[in-house]
Design a protein around this nucleic acid. Structure first.
Lengths: 150, 150
DNA sequence: TTCATTAAGTTGCAAATGCAACAATAGCAA
DNA sequence: TTGCTATTGTTGCATTTGCAACTTAATGAA
């Protein structure tokens, strides 16, 4: 029995959940990027902004933990968000080195629009599934996200 | 009824399939990157190599189509793969501008090891699901990947 | 044939990214 | 108190990335 490189490769590729996840996540990113551009936001900046909206007054480190981004990236994302007036870095109540990040009224004003972006892109992404399939998929993805680290 | 920014944001985030896909794909990428490093391969270079293994003699443009990568990225990935001796750019049989990309014996030798990497990382990724769940997930992901472009 | 157009692949350069060093502060033990 | 270590955040610099311009070759019209 000879080893068939092409077939084996094909088998490996088509059975790889990693590839599939990467492809699907890629579609999502491309669409989000496109629709966020008019707001002068990258996906990373947007993720940071969402975190601040959900937890007003977080520190930068907490933002980083929440969305799994390194500290230097948070630092730069906030530089931009501050420049376009969506967040402010104010004095932290108890620490002089930590930073208290808060959303501005301007950010609250556009919040519904950017939630609209997320909803629209998600609908595009999973729109072909029916309600039952959508629920099943949600449960499966959630259990993968709770997978324990080895 | 007042608009609660924190709650609305939380709702948007926890119901976003995009975030979930991005997180899961991210885990996969981090692991793959780590395990491919000893082979001196990035994920992009690895993807290109897999394509050449599956379709020996493809052109660069075909590789790009297959894995959704821009031409310049293929060009650079192959520069590296050629330098480390995993592929060769040979004359194309019918075109003088297109390139025929073929795998080297050296690449065939290590193929089983890099397939092992993919298998191992995938097992880590979806190992917590049982067989039935795995099949269900595969079907759902495959239908998402066949989703028609609007 | 000649000329214009499209296709395949490469590369220069500016912007984005990531590492590692850095400054400033906090916490804590002696 | 002093001195040591850990935490929080920023930044300099080298690598990586992506756009757009470029070269070369194929196609096709006049």
């Amino acid at each position: 029995m000879k080893f068939d490189l092409s077939k084996t490769t094909r088998h490996t590729r088509t059975n790889s959940f990693g590839w599939m996840f990467q492809r699907i996540a890629g579609q999502f990113m491309v669409e989000m990027k496109k629709q966020l551009a008019p707001f002068d936001l990258t996906i990373e900046q947007f993720a940071a902004l969402m975190t601040v909206m959900e937890h007003d007054g977080v520190t930068q480190r907490q933002i980083g933990e929440h969305i799994s981004m390194p500290a230097y990236a948070i630092s730069r994302a906030l530089d931009h968000l501050e420049k376009i007036g969506f967040v402010e870095r104010v004095a932290h109540p108890t620490s002089r080195r930590a930073v208290h990040v808060v959303v501005t009224p301007r950010a609250k004003d556009i919040a519904p629009q950017i939630f609209g972006v997320v909803d629209r892109v998600n609908d595009e992404l999973i729109g072909i599934l029916d309600d039952g399939q959508t629920d099943t998929l949600r449960l499966l993805l959630q259990s993968l996200l709770r997978a324990p680290k080895p």
